[in-house]
């Protein structure tokens, strides 16, 4: 049996906000340690991996590992009806009914909404994600997630975001990280300097650079990755010219959401 409870729907609403834009369905793995979610976009270019440890839940009972594919668009619709302070209960039996039940209860007026989701096939996930060694990454940038989202929005409004092939070039040297894109009639470059600790900003931009790196990524995917800001104030971008880039948002002390994508390479 699987029975979980969150006394605030906010966390799950934010999770769906962070993934339902780019991913249409996901594999949910419930085990004794918590929830591991994985999804890949239809073109198999991006992968998202989410971990929510059991401690993230106010009540967590999972006496047997249970894996299920769920449609994220349907879930996002259900969660849009939920208020942030609704109590969510997630239940699944092993009665081979291949459904999971989400219950939202409003603490004010006790109104209850019940949604049953049928399991669906998941296109190719879960995959085994190796922990790539730190040494493989030429640069890592940690910055406020709101700042990253703002940059992606600016570049999308300037770049020809209608054009499926608009790329953003992320370049890192020891002082700053640059975001560059080419529009129809010009180019746009946004330079973020590494903040000195003396500035004591509430959210620093920090750069760890082994060697300079400059990589091109699809701007549409960058935009979708920046939605992880619903779950964390900071994003860490790990860049390597021969490994998938990782955009990681730590979720308090209970988990993380990581988006993976390969840089575009010259033919």
């Amino acid at each position: 049996i699987l029975e979980l409870r969150l006394v605030q729907a906010t966390l799950f609403k934010n999770v769906l906000e962070a993934i339902s834009d780019l991913f249409s369905k996901a594999n949910f793995d419930f085990s004794g340690t918590g929830l591991e979610l994985q999804a890949m976009d239809t073109s198999h270019v991006a992968l998202v991996a989410l971990l929510l440890r059991a401690e993230a839940f106010n009540h967590y009972l999972c006496d047997r590992d249970l894996s299920m594919g769920l449609n994220l668009a349907d879930m996002a619709k259900a969660f849009r009806c939920a208020n942030n302070d609704d109590i969510i209960t997630i239940k699944a039996e092993e009665d081979w009914s291949d459904t999971v039940t989400f219950t939202f209860e409003s603490p004010e007026d006790g109104e209850i909404s019940i949604f049953d989701f049928d399991f669906v096939g998941t296109n190719g996930v879960p995959l085994e994600i190796p922990e790539f060694p730190e040494s493989e990454y030429q640069a890592k940038v940690r910055m406020p997630s709101a700042k990253f989202m703002r940059i992606c929005k600016k570049l999308s409004s300037f770049g020809d975001s209608g054009d499926r092939d608009t790329v953003v070039i992320i370049s890192v040297d020891k002082e700053c990280v640059n975001f560059f894109t080419r529009g129809k009639t010009g180019t746009s470059t946004i330079v973020c300097r590494q903040t000195q600790t003396v500035d004591k900003p509430k959210e620093p931009t920090l750069i760890e650079m082994k060697e300079q790196v400059s990589l091109a990524f699809d701007l549409r995917y960058m935009n979708s990755f920046s939605k992880g800001s619903t779950l964390s104030d900071q994003v860490t971008i790990s860049l390597s010219s021969n490994l998938p880039a990782v955009f990681e948002y730590k979720i308090a002390e209970t988990g993380y959401i990581r988006y993976y994508m390969l840089p575009r390479i010259e033919e």
């Binding site: 890949m40 073109s43 198999h44 270019v45 992968l47 085994e128 993976y260 390969l262 390479i265």
Partner: peptide, 14 residues
């Protein structure tokens, strides 16, 4: 033109 490789080339089936 630059090409976009699939993520599955780096992550194997569970």
């Amino acid at each position: 033109p630059c090409i976009q490789k699939k993520i599955m080339e780096y992550f194997s089936k569970d």
